[in-house]
Every structure is written in structure tokens, then in C-alpha cells.
């Protein structure tokens, strides 16, 4: 009888401990999930910070260049291609307009146009193309692999779309962003031509250049 009672109490005690363990797991789990939840926004920032300026390409004068050649200047980087009839000329003309608003500060900026269509956009083609937009604009091309690596480092997406009636039977789809990179080659911000006037973008970039 006594031993039966003891067993009964022990069972209750074990049961209680079991409940405490479950409760601890549930509360701990909830805390863990919340902590991860709270950490989510910074992980997005880490994603943006992961946009790097890293490339080994050929400039429009035929020289091999890497990101190191542009360090010390703020870089405005745009990916496109010369057979692009609308978004690329629109964005490059916009970039030229922004550059013209920098005045003397334009010397602290390196505007870069990287082709995603290197088989057609040779250094000679790039030279003629970039000079039509702005004397400071640098055109970069390279092997398919080198261009893919550059796009990868900037997290730029592009793809070849087969289109029978297009010249050579294809078009390229690409993201129309202008990347602003710091003089250290770190990601600062991203702009899109349609989002603000050239004047507003110039004011915004100049403010960052001057640490405001």
C-alpha cells in the first residue's frame, strides 16, 4: 500500500518533469524561432553587401582591367548590350546626363558599361558605342566566362532569349540597374533610370560622395 502510494507519487513527479521538459522545449523553440526571425532583416543586408565588384575583363581600348583599376573612384556600373534598342540606350543616356551634372566631381567617378553579349560586343564595337554616350564611359567585354563571372559578382541576372526575327536570332533579357560602388569597391546602392530624374540621382550620389 505504502509502496503503491510512493510509485504513484513518483509517477506524478516523472509526469511533471516530463511536462516541464516539453514546456522548456516549446518555449526554447519559440525563442529560437523568434531570434531567427529578428535576424532575418540583417541577413538581407548581408545579401546586398555580397554584391561585389570583381572582374577581369577587356576595356574598350583593348586593355585587360580588373576592379583594382577603378578603386579610389566611385563606380557607376551598368550591364547591357549594344543590340539592345530601348533599355540600354535609355539608361546609358541617363547615366551620361547624371555625369554631366557632377561638374568637376566627375573625376571622382568611374562610369562602367559591361556587356552581357560579348560574342558580338568586341572591344572595337564597345569603343564606338560608349564614346557616343559619354567621353568618360568605359566599356568592358571579355570571354563568355569572364562576363558571367563579373555578372555573378554583381548579382546581375541575364539570359539569352531565342527570337527568330531578331538579329542573329536572339535577344538578351537583363536587369536594368545602375550599381553605385564605393571607392573601396563595396556596394553602396542601386538606381533605376525610371525611378528618379538625372538631377535627383546626381544630387543623391554627390551627397554620398561627400559623406552626407
Amino acid at each position: 500500500m505504502t509502496s503503491g502510494k510512493t510509485t504513484h507519487v513518483r509517477r506524478i513527479r516523472y509526469g511533471l518533469w516530463f511536462l516541464v521538459t516539453i514546456a522548456a522545449l516549446v518555449i526554447g523553440g519559440a525563442y529560437f524561432v523568434r531570434t531567427i526571425g529578428v535576424r532575418e532583416p540583417p541577413s538581407v543586408t548581408t545579401g546586398e553587401a555580397a554584391i561585389r565588384s570583381e572582374f577581369s575583363l577587356i576595356d574598350h581600348n583593348g586593355n585587360r582591367v580588373t576592379e583594382a583599376d577603378f578603386l579610389g573612384r566611385w563606380q557607376l556600373v551598368f550591364f547591357g548590350f549594344t543590340h539592345c534598342p530601348d533599355v540600354c540606350p535609355t539608361t546609358l543616356a541617363y547615366m551620361a546626363n547624371v555625369l554631366d551634372r557632377f561638374g568637376g566631381e566627375v573625376e571622382r567617378v568611374a562610369p562602367i558599361f559591361i556587356t552581357v553579349d560579348p560574342s558580338r560586343d568586341t572591344p572595337e564595337v564597345m569603343a564606338e558605342y560608349v564614346q557616343a554616350f559619354h567621353p568618360k564611359l568605359v566599356g568592358l567585354t571579355g570571354s563568355e566566362a569572364a562576363v558571367a563571372a563579373a555578372a555573378q559578382s554583381f548579382r546581375v541576372y541575364y539570359e539569352r532569349m531565342e527570337e527568330e526575327t531578331a538579329p542573329d536570332g536572339y535577344l538578351m533579357a537583363h536587369s536594368g540597374h545602375i550599381y553605385l560602388m564605393t571607392p573601396e569597391g563595396r556596394f553602396e546602392d542601386v538606381f533605376r533610370e525610371a525611378d528618379q530624374s538625372a538631377e535627383d540621382m546626381a544630387v543623391d550620389v554627390l551627397a554620398r560622395m561627400n559623406g552626407k
Binding site: 549594344t82 543590340h83 534598342p85 530601348d86 564595337v125 564606338e128 558605342y129 557616343a132 531578331a166
Partner: peptide
């Protein structure tokens, strides 16, 4: 239309 930048390129 925009003027051509290069020959034999599509124009919008």
C-alpha cells in the same frame, strides 16, 4: 526614333 549609335543595330 532615336538616332543609331552603331550601324546594323536595332533602333527603337
Amino acid at each position: 526614333a532615336r538616332a543609331s549609335v552603331l550601324a546594323s543595330r536595332p533602333v527603337a
